[in-house]
């Protein structure tokens, strides 16, 4: 008897939710009828999109140029060939970048997620201090973070190289992971955890069966963000790197500074295509996953 009423209530609740969603969608659809009565802002938007894409088009265009100079001398795939066959240093830098990105994102995700759970679930004396401490690295100019780490590593006589790069990347990734996972955790309904407790789950079970699965989309997107940030970073890496610690951005930097080879055009084109082809499906997957 009890279970049937409970079941009935659940179904009614589910129905209410569906109606609410339809109503909301209806609201959005109704807004569609309202025309955008500001053609000027639309114009500026499309001009900006043109501005944002212009460099990418130029790169792809030159990557197919037969000549060494920027002037167009006919279609050729020679730079792509060079990129694949004849650039061992580039590939070493690429491998380094992947290793650093994966390694630092993993470490930062582990540390940041734990801290996010700690500060959203529990209240303790240092809570707001932790939040502030985690926030500051994000607002500091990168160059300051890079300089201070370099000075620090020199002070403790740590040899600069891949290891110091990994430490630096983990450091600047932690605040982002912490913020993203906290945001996700704060969104979730606290009564779910109370319900789990009410149903007899202990702390560990709540952590592994409720909190972590619920925060999983947030954790994954934090991990991906950390990977992206790490792959991107130039300034901080520039200061803390040493022999054997060349990442892809550093390699590109040295190409720009000391003799441009059009291989860089081909590399850029491949990276543009690669990110669009890889990141978009990954984000979409995440979105579907998160909406589940």
């Amino acid at each position: 008897m009890v279970s049937t009423t409970h079941h009935g209530r659940m179904r009614r609740l589910a129905m209410l939710w569906r109606i609410r969603r339809i109503l909301r969608k209806g609201g959005k659809a109704a807004r569609k009828f309202m025309p955008v009565r500001s053609p000027a802002s639309n114009l500026i938007y499309w001009a900006v999109i043109g501005f944002l894409f212009l460099p990418l088009f130029v790169l792809v265009f030159y990557s197919f140029n037969a000549g060494r100079q920027a002037q167009w001398q006919g279609f050729s795939l020679v730079w792509y060939q060079r990129l694949v066959m004849d650039s061992p240093e580039l590939w070493r830098a690429f491998t380094n970048s992947i290793m650093i990105a994966g390694g630092s994102a993993l470490m930062a995700t582990a540390i940041g997620t734990l801290a996010a759970i700690g500060t959203t679930r529990y209240s303790f004396r240092l809570r707001s201090t932790v939040a502030t401490l985690s926030f500051i690295p994000m607002i500091l100019p990168e160059i300051v973070v890079g300089v201070s780490l370099l000075v620090f590593f020199a002070g403790i006589s740590l040899k600069l190289g891949l290891f110091t790069v990994w430490i630096a990347h983990t450091t600047f990734n932690i605040p982002y992971v912490y913020l993203l996972v906290s945001a996700r955790l704060e969104e979730s309904d606290p009564s779910i955890i109370e319900a789990a407790k009410d149903l007899g789950a202990n702390e560990m079970q709540i952590l592994f069966r409720i909190i972590l699965p619920m925060a999983l989309p947030g954790i994954l997107s934090a991990f991906l963000t950390a990977v992206t940030l790490s792959l991107e970073d130039f300034v901080i890496t520039f200061f803390v790197t040493g022999p054997g610690g060349t990442t892809l951005p550093l390699y590109i930097y040295s190409m720009i500074r000391f003799g441009v080879s059009p291989v860089i055009n081909a590399l850029s084109a491949v990276m543009v295509a690669g990110t669009v082809l890889l990141v978009y499906p990954a984000r979409n997957f995440l979105k579907v996953f998160a909406a589940r």
């Binding site: 801290a115 529990y122 303790f124 450091t171 932690i174």
Partner: peptide
């Protein structure tokens, strides 16, 4: 109190040392 602090400890230490 202690549980919350333990969760945040790795982050606190990391940021103390490297930031």
């Amino acid at each position: 109190q202690r549980a919350g602090f333990l969760y945040t400890l790795p982050q606190i230490l990391w940021l103390l040392v490297f930031f």
